[in-house]
Design a protein around this nucleic acid. Sequence first.
RNA 1: GGCCCAUUCGUCUAUCGGCUAGGACGCAAGAUUUUCAUUCUUGAAAGAGGAGUUCGACUCUCCUAUGGGCUACCA
Length: 511
Amino acid sequence: MSQQVRVRFAPSPTGPLHMGGVRTALYNFLFARRHGGKMILRIEDTDSQRFVPGAEEYILESLKWCGIEIDEGVGVGGPHAPYRQSERREIYLKYAKQLVDADWAYYAFDTAAELDTLRKEAEAKGETFAYNYAVREKLPTSLSLSKEEVEQRIARGDQWVIRFKMPENEVVEMDDLIRGHVKVNTSTLDDKVLYKSADALPTYHLANIVDDHLMEISHVIRGEEWLPSLPLHYLLYKAFGWEDTKPQFAHLPLLLKPTGGGKLSKRDGDKMGFPVFPLFWKSPATGETAHGYREDGYFPEAFVNMLALLGWNPGTEQEIFSMQELIDSFSLDRVSKAGARFQPDKAKWFNAQYMHHKSDEELAALFQPILKANGVETSDELAGKAAGIMKERASFITDLWDLTSYFFVAPTQYDEKQTKKYWKGENPARLAELREVLAAIDDFSLENTERVVGEWIAQKEYGMGQIMNTLRLALVGAGKGPGMYDVTAFLGKEECLKRIDYVLANLKPVE
RNA sequence: GGCCCAUUCGUCUAUCGGCUAGGACGCAAGAUUUUCAUUCUUGAAAGAGGAGUUCGACUCUCCUAUGGGCUACCA
């Protein structure tokens, strides 16, 4: 790449950032890092109606959690500040007027209500209303009105918009890094609003092109939903005379629902029990809440890894990637063209992989808050040890409590099935015998206990399964858990004997 | 309706004209295991349909079908 790579992630703060948005941000970030370029965060808050308080903070926190670093933009500043479009409003009018002066745009005075009736009338006749070359000179615009009237209307405070004057019957030829060559005839396009006087703000199209130009963006990597407006954007670059610095475009495939049709939405997550947002979200307006990957026990590395492989592949059979490995292998030409259906099972699998490879120390740090929430005060060492023993069986950090609680809290209730199966016949008496065997052991390490008990069972010719499961019932309270000697070693001699004594004294054998 | 994009196992995908179509998730069976998992082995499972180009097409072209996106003074 000859010029400096500068990419941007430009979300609109209209709600929590969707995981599809996170993926777009991730691909931008990977591309920037891969090419030694800059990642810019621009907030596109040009819709004053849909602004949601807290959404911007949510976006920032989400990116941070994922390890997507911003080089320039909202939150960090930079040479092109401000990076919030609402703080750049005075910039856009000048450019909009420049387009009017160059006859690439015009003023339109229709009200929303008037346009609405025009649309309805057309619909009634089985047609579709398009604001384009066919009607713009028949409607109240600066193309049909006299110069004086236009000035008069503006002066007296009539509301107006500036619309792009879409050429008639021209073919726009575009190149997309993912989709290749695309052609569109301009007659199928309409005169998009670029600027609205009502809130003195541009629309997406104008603000986007102006800012990308001003911020020297080299590559626009965004969702496929923007492909239909690419011709407009191409024409805008042409109208401004910026064609030689026009960025390259890459339109990403969409993330689709796990089942059924359409793109992934919040509702799917609620229905099928998986998050569609990176972080927990509570709507300030409605109080509605939504699950987040973070709170649901996902590791950010796993979430990012899973997201990266949804629509991109490295061309090898590697599936587990650290962020650095993603950076080293990412390339736009290995992004697929078709939409990718999101699969919760695969996300879970990725998380389990990371879970299995975490060190005891890392797990301890993540597990401690959960232990505390369950009223357990313990050392990081023990928390990590318990987590380490059981991590192979867990997919999420949140699974760990169910898997390890008996390490920290002695059972007082005993699983019915396990009790029925093993707390009968000779087993209670054998457990009493085993208690004495254990009591005589000095070195209570896993290996030694295993050896001593093993020899005892062999010598007495007892059934291994009966003995071990009875012991499991006493120590764990159920038929679950890791290897029995993992439990004895963790608990220690004193606690083991205590739990056995409790069972011997309190649990009534079944007949 | 119009415009645009897409189409390989159920799902994510590999294949850039030579294929016995590979991997992963999930599923099934088996092995391991004192429990539950993990792990390992094996298995079932795909080129939307039709024309063309070619010695040869999953790969190229066209048509059809299907899916998706867009069609706001929202992004």
